[in-house]
């Protein structure tokens, strides 16, 4: 069995939600908020919300899309916002730019909707992240599997979803280590293709464990 030189260190994450100063009652105000809110706010309403609502696998993507759908009642714009896939982004700046583009173009095309009041206001919040080590590490595929099987949802989310922003690569901690630490590039790539929008964190983890088990049987 291959032993990685650098172990995989399992950590977990917890988020505090800080209430921001901005809110929006119309699409035009949403656009202004998107342009001016902090990076932590964009992160909170996209990356973090996907983790905390992972069990919604039908049509929930981010808070902006949900508000546009349920409160601003603009299904077409909601669909466009929901279609933005956070896996395509390794920086908040790029994600913000696309969010602004989508809402901006919609407001330009339908100015009569831009100023229409929504049922409820949207409040911009932001995430404060606290990470703690779990005191567990892995050097082999067996240890790695065991560590993943015992992770909390938050720990799994941290390594599998929010890691893209940390790594600034279109991959996740698990794939990064499988490729770099164990030289299992094909497995790493397959793991990276698990769809986080149509799977819950539990079913993503189950798929990941099955892929690892298949690899272990080859050894």
């Amino acid at each position: 069995m291959i032993n990685a030189e650098t172990p995989f260190e399992f950590v977990t994450v917890s988020y505090l939600t800080r209430i921001g100063n901005q809110s929006a009652g119309t699409l035009a105000e949403l656009l202004t908020g998107l342009e001016h809110c902090s990076d932590a706010s964009i992160f909170h309403h996209t990356f973090q919300t996907l983790g905390s609502h992972h069990f919604l696998t039908e049509g929930f993507s981010n808070d902006f899309a949900q508000w546009v759908l349920a409160d601003a009642n603009r299904d077409d714009l909601a669909e466009q916002l929901a279609a933005l896939d956070i896996r395509d982004y390794v920086s908040i700046a790029a994600l913000r730019s696309d969010l602004c583009r989508v809402v901006g173009e919609y407001c330009k095309a339908f100015p009569h909707f831009a100023g229409q009041s929504a049922l409820e206001r949207f409040y911009f919040c932001e995430s404060t992240e606290v990470t703690v080590p779990l005191g567990r590490s892995a050097r082999t595929l067996d240890e790695f599997r065991d560590g993943i099987a015992h992770l909390s949802h938050a720990g799994f989310y941290f390594h599998f979803i929010s890691s893209r922003l940390r790594l600034q690569l279109q991959t996740n901690d698990f794939s990064h280590w499988l490729a770099g630490g164990l030289g299992l590039a094909t497995l790493a790539d397959t793991v990276n293709r698990i769809d986080i929008y149509t799977n819950t964190l539990d079913s993503s983890r189950a798929k990941l464990l099955r892929l690892i088990d298949r690899e272990r049987r080859k050894a």
């Binding site: 917890s14 703690v132 779990l134 005191g135 015992h150 992770l151 909390s152 949802h153 938050a154 720990g155």
Partner: peptide, 15 residues
Amino acid sequence: LGEGEIEELRALAKP
């Protein structure tokens, strides 16, 4: 809730 969630609470409480 699963052992993982409780382990996480212990990890946050430790410091």
